[in-house]
């Protein structure tokens, strides 16, 4: 699975950082930054929670 992010939608809520800090961060402009696009198997549940917890649906998963 890969993570996709739409910086035009991101509002810097940081909910993704809360759910999966090993994958998501915010930059100085409070926009989402991905540590990497590919999701490791043991991170998948946290990343799914991050996707669910984004209020503006700025991140999502795609099949790689």
């Amino acid at each position: 699975m890969n993570i996709e992010a739409d910086l035009g939608k991101c509002q810097g809520f940081a909910n993704c950082v809360m759910a999966a800090p090993e994958v998501f961060d915010l930059d100085d402009a409070s926009l989402v930054v991905l540590a990497r696009r590919q999701v490791l198997p043991d991170e998948l549940e946290d990343v799914r929670e991050a996707v669910r917890s984004c209020p503006v649906e700025a991140i999502w998963l795609t099949e790689s």
Partner: peptide
């Protein structure tokens, strides 16, 4: 401090 707060959680 979002990253630190994620750790605190």
């Amino acid at each position: 401090q979002p990253r630190a707060i994620a750790r605190v959680r």
